[in-house]
């Protein structure tokens, strides 16, 4: 296709720029030596620190550029591509700046925050590169509203079929539709936990009580109706039950796709909820790190 992913943007020009920056930083680091051990306090260390600090501020500005909709300062895709590659280079630049001198202090805290931000960014890059394909394959040419309208159509069909069945089946099918749970809290979305239920009751002959039973992945309701098939009281019920099982299975398949869609989209966004707040924290820590450095000079 004519489209270009953000990693390949303009022949990955920012990858080469990031590599050049990294080579430059390593070179600068290696010129340290002699009397003083490499650290953030040498002139090379200061340059590396300045580059790192400027990079952090510029990387954070993506959030501003993304919302400056009328801006003609490059495209958001270009900015994002540069954000990814230069952000990755920052890991090296900042590590060289630290020169491996870690401790229980505010400086190392800023460094750790930065690493977390970058690592969550890596997760984001992986998510953006792979999850959209899975979502698209899961949709198979449709979209979420279409999946839902298919689900609602199946609900109507099932209700019409259920009316023609004996009371226990009717109650079971109707309640399984009413008590189908989709989505929910964050955990439910991320792990696709399914709290669907249905009302299981005995037949007129067995006379047992109605109980609310679990219906994860709609499997129990399918089994329940299927179990009635060989035990049908009247031969006339059999075709109806056959059709019910078929529609329940179709509904199961649609629900699986909806849940998968919800799960994939949740994962697609999850990393941002780590990346963005930590970035803000990093900016604060960065300011503290710089201030304290100069205060105790």
């Amino acid at each position: 296709m004519i489209h270009e992913s953000l990693l390949k943007y303009r022949n990955a020009r920012f990858l080469w720029q990031a590599l050049a920056l990294m080579v430059l930083s390593i070179g600068l680091y290696l010129t340290q030596g002699g009397v003083r051990v490499p650290s953030g306090g040498t002139w090379q260390g200061y340059i590396l620190g300045t580059i790192g600090a400027l990079l952090i501020v510029w990387l954070a500005l993506l959030g501003v550029r993304k919302r400056a909709y009328a801006s003609s300062l490059g495209t958001v895709q270009g900015w994002t591509s540069a954000h990814v590659y230069l952000g990755s280079a920052l890991l090296l630049v900042a590590t060289l700046h630290s020169a491996g001198q870690f401790g229980w202090n505010v400086h190392t805290f800023a460094y750790v925050l930065m690493c977390l931000v970058i690592l969550s960014g890596f997760v984001g890059v992986y998510a953006y590169a792979s999850i959209p394909q899975w979502i698209s394959e899961n949709h198979a040419g449709g979209n979420r509203p279409e999946l839902f309208s298919e689900l609602f159509a199946l609900n109507r069909q099932l209700q019409l079929l259920a009316v023609k069945s004996e009371a226990a089946i009717q109650l079971a099918v109707t309640s399984s539709i009413e008590r189908t749970a989709i989505g929910g809290d964050v955990a439910a979305q991320l792990f696709g936990r399914d709290r669907s239920r249905f009302i299981r009751s005995g037949t007129a002959s067995s006379g047992s009580e109605a109980v609310l039973s679990g219906n994860e992945d709609q499997q129990q309701i399918i089994d329940f109706v299927a179990a009635r098939l060989p035990r049908a009281d009247k031969a006339a019920e059999v075709p109806n039950l056959h059709e019910l099982v078929l529609f329940l299975c179709r509904r199961q398949s649609v629900l699986r796709r909806i849940r998968r869609d919800i799960r994939l989209r949740a994962w697609l966004q999850l990393w941002l909820y780590v990346h963005v707040p930590l970035s803000v924290a990093l900016l604060v820590a960065l300011v503290v790190h710089i201030l304290t450095t100069f205060m105790y000079w």
């Binding site: 489209h3 953000l6 909709y69 801006s71 003609s72 958001v76 895709q77 900015w79 994002t80």
Partner: peptide, 24 residues
């Protein structure tokens, strides 16, 4: 009237959106 062309395309962070002419 916007310098740089359609905002929808320029605002796409991943390069998924493009405006194409028939020759493309």
């Amino acid at each position: 009237g916007l310098a740089g062309g359609p905002a929808c395309v320029r605002a796409c962070p991943t390069g998924a959106a493009l405006r194409l002419g028939p020759e493309q």
